[in-house]
Design a binder for these strands. Structure first.
Length: 418
RNA sequence: GGAGAGGUGGCCGAGCUGGUUUAAGGCGUACGCCUGCUAAGCGUAUGUAGGGGAAACUCUACCGAGGGUUCGAAUCCCUCCUUCUCCGCCA
């Protein structure tokens, strides 16, 4: 949600931002409705004032036993006029807030314009592995432990079924990553894996992503598409003290995505699935410090890949590739040696006050003064399937076995998976 | 799933037989005073949002959310959300 004052003062800026994000919005229609609303509001407040005065007069007269019929009649008449104006303004309010929910966040000034092709590679880390044999994709290397046909029988296509070492590897990674975050001072959250409409709206999955989410109609719940939703919503409608900031959280959740219309392209094996596991990092930050917190989250996430020895690169997303709610976003991509391409394994975004406004998340400044919206940030730390792809494909040996990085070998109890 | 009780300003909490409460009181917080001592006491201020005014100030809305009744609703009625207690069911 954007500040109404900003919409009034700089409608052009908002319109340009939406265009940069390829969102269609009609700011003129909003401005029109907003000014109609304010005119109406003045009239309504005036009528309410009159009615309040009449009510008080009635009250005083009745108490002293006088007749108040005249005031009551006037008040009734005022009330009739009021209720017609009030129903008008309610309509306008609905229209305004519907429109506002569809206004995307404004990209930061340092975000490059344009589509995905304008993403900027900020840096690359690690050596791309070379093999003296033909490298295989993960679905071949994992034939015995990753069985999509079995998952299909259970839940339908594009779900994951792991068995044996793959199942254990996933569990071990989740636990290893959580420990890594906790050690850096984050608090672990275990939250619900379903969320209601209000929560989805606060973090801005709704209204835009409705069709990409699984919904349980009977109970009006959505399966969460990312841990961002429940973990950020932990602070929806909450007021923090400045001293409470920053709030640093992490948590494991599965993520459910319908991926409607994405069949056929790049979705073989583990590349794109309906349910995947993820450890999420969430940060609530003082507005003055969200910029550096953003970098910090990025480096923290990348640190895990360095411990695992996985080559990665950092992208600064261009405006057209930014999500609806993000002001700025870094993607981390890791190398897939069996498919010879980069895979997105983490998106780390600064939403500034966009989500905080929607979810009413504020803090009170230490020296007193007006309550302020906090800044929210989050990032994957990390998403499991693609991490597993990389570990398996990059660690493959000539005989089809997988050599584990030492950080994991210790936890898995073996150095080679076969 | 059934029955019952709640949801009031940052927190606690009164009001809930409709109108001098446009929310008492307490805690917390801020400033000041007093006290010579890591304490206490006293005074004043202190919800959020929007509008008007140079300013003192003033108007409007908000008592979980939304509707309704009424001249007038925190207070009455309805729907929903949510918390707790008991019963049932269940890993």
């Amino acid at each position: 949600m954007l500040d109404r004052k900003l919409l009034r003062k700089e409608p052009l800026k908002v319109a340009e931002a939406a265009k940069a994000k390829n969102e269609k919005i009609d700011i003129d229609r909003w401005l029109e409705a907003d000014s109609a609303r304010r005119t109406l509001m003045l009239q309504i407040e005036e009528l309410r004032k009159i009615r309040n005065q009449l009510s008080k007069a009635v009250s005083v007269k009745k108490r002293s036993g006088e007749n108040a019929d005249e005031e009551m009649a006037q008040s009734r008449e005022t009330g009739t006029r009021l209720s017609s104006l009030e129903s008008n303004i309610a309509d306008i309010d609905n229209r305004l807030s519907e429109m506002e929910k569809g206004f995307p966040n404004i990209p930061d000034p340092d975000v490059p314009l344009g589509g995905e092709e304008n993403n900027v590679v900020l840096r690359t880390w690690g050596e791309i592995p070379e093999f003296d044999f033909q490298a295989k994709p993960h679905w071949e290397l994992m034939e015995n432990v990753f069985q999509p046909e079995a998952a299909g029988r259970i839940a339908g296509s594009n779900f994951i079924l792991f068995r044996g070492w793959a199942a254990k590897l996933q569990r071990t990674l989740i636990s290893w990553m959580l420990d890594y975050h906790i050690e850096s001072g984050m608090e672990e959250i275990w939250a619900p894996f379903v969320a209601k409409k209000e929560s989805m709206t606060a973090t801005a999955q709704l209204p835009k992503m409705e069709d990409d989410m699984y919904k349980i109609d009977r109970d009006n719940l959505y399966l969460i598409p990312t841990g961002e939703v429940p973990v950020t919503n932990l602070y929806r409608d909450q007021l923090l003290e400045e001293a409470d900031l920053p709030v640093r959280l992490c948590g494991y959740t599965p993520c459910f995505r319908r991926e409607a219309g994405s069949y056929g392209k790049d979705n073989r094996g583990l590349n794109r699935v309906h349910q995947f596991e993820k450890v999420e990092m969430v940060r609530l930050e003082h507005p003055d410090r969200s910029e550096e917190a953003h970098e910090e989250l990025l480096n923290h996430a990348a640190g895990m890949l360095e411990l695992l020895g996985i080559p990665y690169r950092i992208l600064l997303l261009a405006s057209g590739d930014l999500s609806f709610a993000a002001a700025k976003c870094f993607d981390i991509e890791i190398w897939s040696a069996g498919q010879n391409k980069w895979l997105e394994v983490s998106s780390i975004a600064n939403f500034r006050e966009f989500q905080a406004r929607r979810g009413n998340m504020r803090y009170r400044p230490a020296g007193g003064g007006k309550q302020q919206f906090i800044h929210t940030l989050n990032g994957s730390g990390l998403a499991l399937p693609r991490l597993i792809i990389s570990l398996v494909e990059n660690g493959q040996q000539a005989d089809g076995s997988i050599k584990l990085p030492s950080a994991l070998a210790e936890r898995m109890g073996v150095e080679v998976l076969r």
